[in-house]
Design a protein around this nucleic acid. Sequence first.
DNA 1: TCCTGTTATATTGTTATCAATATCTTTATT
DNA 2: AATAAAGATATTGATAACAATATAACAGGA
Lengths: 229, 229
Amino acid sequence: MNNAAHTEIDRVCNAIYQAIFERRLEPNTRLVESQLAKVLSTSRANARQALLLLAQRKLVNIVPNKGAVVAEPSKPEAIEIFAARRCIEREIVQLVFQRCKPKDIDALRLHLEEEQKARQANDHFELIRATGKFHLLLAKIAGNKVLLDFLEQLIAHSSLILEKFETHNNRTCQENDHSEMINLIENGELEEGLELMDKHLRDLEQVLNFQEKSKPANLNEVFAPLLGK
Amino acid sequence: MNNAAHTEIDRVCNAIYQAIFERRLEPNTRLVESQLAKVLSTSRANARQALLLLAQRKLVNIVPNKGAVVAEPSKPEAIEIFAARRCIEREIVQLVFQRCKPKDIDALRLHLEEEQKARQANDHFELIRATGKFHLLLAKIAGNKVLLDFLEQLIAHSSLILEKFETHNNRTCQENDHSEMINLIENGELEEGLELMDKHLRDLEQVLNFQEKSKPANLNEVFAPLLGK
DNA sequence: TCCTGTTATATTGTTATCAATATCTTTATT
DNA sequence: AATAAAGATATTGATAACAATATAACAGGA
């Protein structure tokens, strides 16, 4: 999440961020400082600061004297987030078409295999993670760190949104769009690329028209994979 | 800076942010936790957390075990920041043209007077603050909180950049551009509005072609205005 | 004079403790 | 049985003390 210096609190921050991003932590899950500290084997102060950072990115909500919960974007907020994504990813597409090199194409194609693998294995979380990562890969190729940083925030939010509104149809990024995008980049068809990204994001946004769902979570099992190492 | 709940650390954060935004704190100024705590009459823990938040927004740099300094964007970073501004403010212009109401126009014109006053009084800092605020006003009219939040970060950075590269000519926003923009909005001339914003931001970016400058600062006098209340 | 190593100081990072607030449980009353 | 009040528990918020690290000042030798 944070490309900055890796301090202890960055580690904690990343652990929580990953859990949110990969949807092991659902919206509205309560995040108690002392419990986080214990589970992630750090001090309460660090857990507290990590929560503060995540709150600034609006990934958790902190209400004074009450504590932190995983954020749950409302529908109007979700619409704004997707609008922002269209704005920023449009620019990213433009930059990618200017700067993409052969080895970048290779990396994108390699990544596509990850997506396919997750799709075939029906591993839903992994698919979410992988499709999100594709967009971040494009942002890295674009080469503007500010836009990359913004997009990271937006994609984390999108993850929360998908979690909340997701249908039984497992709607994520459309299967062929990413592959199609790579082809367009390779052929330098900019206009089509811009259009595809726009369509792609509007498709994703359609989840908002479905109903929500809900259920709680348990900190110990959420972070279990981390405890082993 | 932060539209979130107003806790003590938000207050501290805002005080520092304002000082940076209004350029009372120059790039590379060292920010010592204990000193900040004393000057802003808060605890060191709060000062520390505030610095952490500002670091996440890249307004200060924290290097582990060494401390925090006001960030100093490099030229390549500055270029990325202006590119991001063009991207986001283009979208904002588009939204403004859709959503601007008569009372918004009035507010913009009213604001213009502030700019004029600062210009006539030759109050450089105030002019910086006011011209930046014009852009944020547009963002508020656009009505997308996510984009507003991003732009706030970008404008704070722009402020730092202007400080670093500024010439003796006091280049800030061109005098007539803002007024011209209001007219275009009123008349619904979208294409011209988009072009103007783009030109406007590219003009501003020209400061990067000039030389830098430098000098230190003193925390006590920087925050003196706050101590009186 | 310049460099190097040493001591002293200042600052950051961490931990423990206490107070304030909120949440939950129990008890009492109608 | 339902509601309200009172107490117990848990959690957050704040403070202080301590340890680790880096910076600055100083002294000694080439």
